[in-house]
């Protein structure tokens, strides 16, 4: 059967969904950057609080809002080897506590000796934080209270404790955004990896020689067929390998034959891997035979032929379109053509 062959670079088989998946994580990244523009710093000061007492900051007008919350960040300024239990309190206009959250903060340091070596260490957990939202307009006051203060030897301390307090309004909780960024990026990467191996694997044949072949029903007018040839060779070979690919139709007639240089992709100590990929549309959908011959064949240890039907791509690729020649009916009867 005479066929026409046309080679064309095309974007028609690009899978947009893998880019949409990546776009989703791009959206979260934008949201993460955008969250920096919504908040407003209200208070940033140092306070000193006596044990079993509390210190009030200036009052704040809190309104219900769509984006963000009031964020109170507190950092205890502890001397080494002490601990404190402090509370972030929200007071209403009458001075009553309407919300509170508690933090157990500590700071420790010391020296270590091991096998004749020594050094110093210090560790601490001082930061506390509370995010608050209001359902209605509310005049509130933030207060910091010290519930207990002591040192690591077990003594209670009576000195005041210093705190660095920051209050911001309209703060977005970026913990959700970071997890969303990681989650959607992982899915996007999986989608990108899945695209070249999409569709159905029609032929997957590995032989310890240089001439694999296989036959399968593939193709269709608007379906991409990906042919991949992988070669494992030992190091004693000429740099360039050539793969000759022949495609036969259902009647065993040759519809395509071409020798192409293979690409070197990876080399280890005793194996070198080469690969060649080519793309076809085969019309009509039918049984096709694929035959590969890698030359020179002396260094070839293993050759793998993979044919994927209904495949997609990430980037524009060169596609060989093979379809029956429109004049095939006439050419069978030349006398009709030239009466």
């Amino acid at each position: 059967m005479p066929v026409t062959t046309k080679t064309q670079r095309t974007s028609r088989f690009i899978d947009p969904w893998s880019y949409i998946a990546l776009g989703a994580s791009g959206l979260v990244l934008l949201a993460l950057m955008g969250s920096q523009f919504f908040y407003k710093k209200l208070v940033s000061e140092r306070v000193s609080v006596e044990p079993e007492a509390s210190v009030e900051l200036e009052s704040i007008q809190l309104e219900p809002r769509l984006v963000g919350a009031l964020r109170i960040d507190v950092r205890a300024l502890l001397p080494s080897n002490t601990w404190v239990i402090y509370e972030i309190q929200i007071l209403d206009q009458n001075g009553d506590v309407i919300a509170s959250a508690m933090k157990e903060a500590w700071s420790e340091s010391g020296t270590w000796y091991e096998d004749g070596e020594s050094g110093s260490w210090s560790e601490s957990d001082l930061q506390g934080g509370l995010d608050v939202q209001a359902k209605k307009n509310e005049q509130i006051t933030v207060a910091i209270a010290v519930l207990e203060y002591g040192n690591t030897s077990g003594q209670e301390l009576e000195q005041p404790v210093g705190f660095k307090v920051t209050v911001e309004n309209g703060v977005v909780d970026t913990r959700y955004l970071w997890s969303g960024l990681i989650g959607s990026a992982i899915l996007g990467i999986i989608a990108v990896i899945a695209t070249p191996i999409s569709g159905k694997t029609a032929i997957a044949k590995t032989i310890q020689d240089s001439d694999p072949s296989g036959r399968a029903t593939v193709g269709g007018a608007d379906q991409l067929v990906r042919v991949k040839i992988n070669v494992k060779a030992d190091e004693t070979f000429p740099r360039q390998l050539t793969a000759r690919l022949v495609i036969n139709d259902a009647y065993g007639e040759q519809v395509y034959a071409r020798a192409m240089p293979m690409h070197f992709i990876l080399g280890t100590e005793d194996t070198r891997r080469h690969q060649l990929q080519c793309f076809f549309t085969l019309d009509p959908r039918s049984s096709y035979g694929f035959h590969v011959e890698v030359t020179p064949d002396a260094p070839v240890d293993q050759t793998k032929l993979t044919v994927r039907d209904r495949n997609h791509t990430l980037v524009p690729v060169e596609v060989v379109h093979i379809r029956p020649s429109p004049l095939s009916d006439l050419s069978d009867h030349p006398q009709d053509k030239h009466p």
């Binding site: 969904w17 919350a69 939202q133 955004l177 969303g180």
Partner: peptide, 24 residues
């Protein structure tokens, strides 16, 4: 994968911007 990625993006952006985690 794209559908799941979009769902994750929209849910986490909504949760973050509305401060779902805050004390009300």
């Amino acid at each position: 994968f794209a559908g799941a990625a979009i769902a994750i993006a929209l849910l986490t952006i909504t949760a973050g911007y509305t401060q779902r985690s805050a004390l009300v």
